[in-house]
Design a protein around this nucleic acid. Structure first.
Lengths: 351, 351
DNA sequence: ATGAAAGCGCTAACAC
DNA sequence: GTGTTAGCGCTTTCAT
């Protein structure tokens, strides 16, 4: 091992070894760096034998190409940024299992396509930070999970030509590309199912200020209309995606004496919380109140009673989000995509 | 806007705009690139007025420094790799909520320290891929979640001086740094609690081939010993962290007529699955069988009955893992760290 | 206080 | 088929 010179900026602290570079491999192989470069990228230009010899040497040395240098030269990176906005006030954790699941799906999809995934939490009020990922050349584009109320900000980012795809609902005059579940359908089938069970006073649990929830509420109304059943506004409960809020809201509703015989929660967490609160107050699920959740996380089938829920295709979502982004990067016009959802009926809503 | 030359390699496809660079800012500000560089890094060398003027200009132009170039020059990156090994055979999703939660904690900790987080799924049988992240200069170090049975492989990576920190149990002759919950303690307090409730035949649900589970089992034994209660080997059920496996294993146990009055599951998922299976077969929880889980995920408190569980400090874990890695990078010797766990008693295990 | 120039590790013309 | 060379966009001596 020749460890000749050691000029250049300060090296990384203790645990790090001098990083091998292409020149080292070239020297050891007795060829030039260009040949190594070509060999390692599988170029046809280099003699097959030489290529194999170099590849073997590189492997043996545990050499891997410096991606920073490569990307700088090539003017591109292979990193996709995944951004989950957080509420700066509470600085709270990513807590909803749905987001977390999504992450899993995205990680797989991104890896499969030969990219790496950079996960970034950014202040929801300052989504410009997402643009930084791209402006700095770190990532080629951004997948944003959590449309929330940031439609306008997202539009501004898209206007700046930031390659971005958002998980969420399609909105009028939207400049950015969305991929999302069919919320109208989801809300409708869940509600129709409850109506078909003879339920007539169905609580809707979710904040319709959020575009996705708003669509689900529309589905809820549509199902009522189709069945000729009136919607009761006092059953529309605008709670955020938080267990505590759901709990106290349901509690208040019960205390206030408003009657209801079903609950449609806009997430499994909301639905499960509702079930718990109902039981705590002596109400039987599903006999007295049927409950349907949304997202169909794995836990839905393992809770008690197993929770009926509108299944969102998380893996598929990951794939679609990534593919949409890559298409965007190729300069294609990418229309919003809507993914099929499906009601999975379990015991929480059926006799 | 002068858009002078456009030489150099192919530019990114359609959606991308020509990326602004320091030279542009310099030209617009009427100074040299060195001055811009200095101004943007807050150097004292540059005139405060100039500095502010340049900063304002950069902000206005939405300019951000090209991190690839910067890092290449500086010989370091600000990315921490987070690796979750997957089983190549099943190619399965990250499914356990605990892992996912951990991701949230890590994302926060990494962001707080001014790093970015690169999430990477690698084949569990080929953890060398984790080393690539560092060898390629992409990441400065790796946090690996999922020690599984890969102790030897991890040791090899550490022997290669890869800066790596692993979430898991401390093992003899371990070359790599671990951060983990106090599994011995967790197993002990959970078991002691059940014994204190008068339970005498406690099922242990978890695969002791995994180091963490093995420690928990030791705790289980220790608690028994301390209480002078015999351990029954037929109650030690080596199931992996999968709901289906747990379900069928519990089912078989019940079918086989082996008596038991409590279950200690090594994850909340396992415990919840057990509860469900028990109820399905007409056994009351907690009256006939008390159940305690592990991890204390948010869902534990919202399932029915609320699940007693050994709480793992997920946020704290993220912080400790990252801090350990950074210490490693500074060349410090970092001893394994063990985090306190705490039993949270809920209705699933108390009358 | 500011500028000129070298070079981080790589790829791709362009020579041979 | 292989080597030489010129940058990719930055930071940082070194000069002024």
């Amino acid at each position: 091992m020749t460890a000749e010179d050691n000029k250049g900026p300060a090296r990384q602290g203790g645990a790090a070894r001098r990083r091998l570079q292409m020149a080292d491999v070239a020297r050891l192989a007795g060829v030039s760096v260009s040949t190594v470069s070509r060999a390692l990228s599988g170029s046809e230009l280099v003699n097959p034998e030489t290529r194999e010899r170099i590849a073997a040497l590189a492997r043996e040395l545990n050499y891997s190409i410096n991606l920073g240098a490569k990307n700088l030269r090539l003017q591109r990176s292979h990193i996709i940024g995944v951004v989950i906005p957080y509420d700066a006030a509470s600085r709270q954790h990513i807590t909803d299992p749905f987001f977390l699941s999504m992450l899993g799906g995205l990680a797989d999809a991104i890896t499969d396509r030969g990219y790496d995934m950079l996960l970034s939490r950014v202040d929801a009020e300052n989504l410009d930070a997402a643009a930084r990922l791209v402006d700095s050349g770190l990532a080629v584009g951004v997948v944003l999970i959590g449309q929330w109320r940031h439609h306008d900000q997202l539009n501004m980012l898209a206007a700046r030509k930031l390659p971005i795809v958002v998980w969420g609902a399609q909105l009028p005059q939207q400049l950015y590309c969305t991929v999302g579940g069919d919320n109208l359908l989801g809300g409708r089938v869940a509600t129709a199912h409850l109506l078909a069970q003879g339920r007539r006073r169905i609580v809707f649990l979710g904040d319709p200020q959020l575009p996705e929830v708003e669509r689900r509420l529309e589905g809820y109304r549509a199902a009522h209309a189709a069945a000729g059943v009136a919607v009761h506004n006092e059953l529309l409960l605008a709670v955020p995606f938080e267990a505590d809020a759901a709990r106290s809201t349901i509690g208040q509703l019960m205390a206030s004496g408003v009657a209801f015989d079903a609950v449609l929660g806009c997430s499994d967490l909301l639905a499960i919380t509702a079930i718990r609160e109902l039981r705590e107050r002596g109400t039987e699920v599903p006999r007295e109140v049927a409950v349907v959740g949304y997202d169909d996380m794995p836990l839905a089938q393992y809770c008690d009673p197993p929770l009926s829920s509108v299944h969102q295709p998380v893996s598929e979502a990951g794939v679609q989000l990534v593919d949409a982004l890559l298409a965007l990067l190729r300069g294609e016009a990418v229309p919003p995509r809507m993914l099929d959802v499906e009601l999975v009926v379990r015991r929480s809503s059926s006799a």
